[in-house]
């Protein structure tokens, strides 16, 4: 594992901690898209079907369990916790996320590394992760004002993707047979979705102002 991959995993972890912190400390999930969070649950469950069949390392196994557990906890809070669920901005979270699930699954049936149950679900999870942030980004755009922790959450998620791209570049030059075009292309698409957000994030940071997205 190289430093970029590790930095990517850590920023991913930080994003989840920031989100859990926001929900726990403020007892509020305003500005957070339940649809994006539900998509992440599907992404992790579909991708980590290999938990019981392929052992890579203790690190990988622990991280997989943390990602599954934390995404389930977030969705549980937003749906079941009495105080938290009242703060959910349902009317702003109207993205038709079922289409993303359906589209990703069809794409996985067409484009995959091997035609096996696990590999189809792995490819599905890669495609779905690439678009899972869309309901969240649309929600941010709609509300215009982004509270601090929500902004940090999306920032760290985007940083995670950026580090994974650096990780692939590094692996491409250091590993003789590194070719994983499904993950790399999907990763590029996914990171591109954050470009707009990053632009406004850095402007607000430079001006030391509250993050605001144009309508």
């Amino acid at each position: 594992m190289n430093i970029f991959r590790f930095a990517g995993d850590m920023t991913h972890l930080i994003s989840i901690v920031v989100l859990l912190l926001k929900i726990y400390a403020t007892k509020s999930c305003s500005g957070i898209s339940l649809k994006t969070q539900e998509l992440y649950v599907i992404v992790f469950l579909a991708r980590y079907l290999d938990l019981f069949t392929d052992f890579i390392s203790v690190y990988n196994t622990v991280m997989k369990l943390v990602f599954i557990g934390s995404s389930l906890a977030i969705v549980w809070c937003m749906r079941m916790h009495r105080a938290v669920k009242r703060t959910y901005d349902k009317e702003l979270d109207t993205f038709r996320h079922y289409f993303l699930v359906l589209g990703s699954f069809v794409l996985a049936l067409l484009l995959h590394e091997k035609f096996t149950f696990q590999e189809i679900f792995w490819a599905f999870s890669i495609y779905l992760e690439a678009v899972a942030i869309l309901p969240q980004l649309v929600m941010l755009q709609r509300s215009g004002n982004v509270d601090n922790l929500t902004g940090q959450y999306v920032f760290f998620l985007g940083a995670y993707r950026a580090f994974y791209i650096l990780n692939w570049i590094y692996r491409f030059f250091t590993e003789p047979h590194f070719s994983r075009w499904i993950a790399c292309l999907s990763g590029l698409v996914q990171t591109a979705f954050y470009a707009d957000f990053f632009y406004y994030y850095f402007i607000s940071w430079k001006n030391n102002a509250k993050l605001q997205l144009p309508a």
């Binding site: 991959r5 995993d9 991913h12 991708r47 392929d54 990780n167 993950a183």
Partner: peptide
């Protein structure tokens, strides 16, 4: 060279 075993990224 050995084939990659499974997906090693998260």
């Amino acid at each position: 060279l050995p084939q990659e075993q499974g997906h090693d990224e998260l």
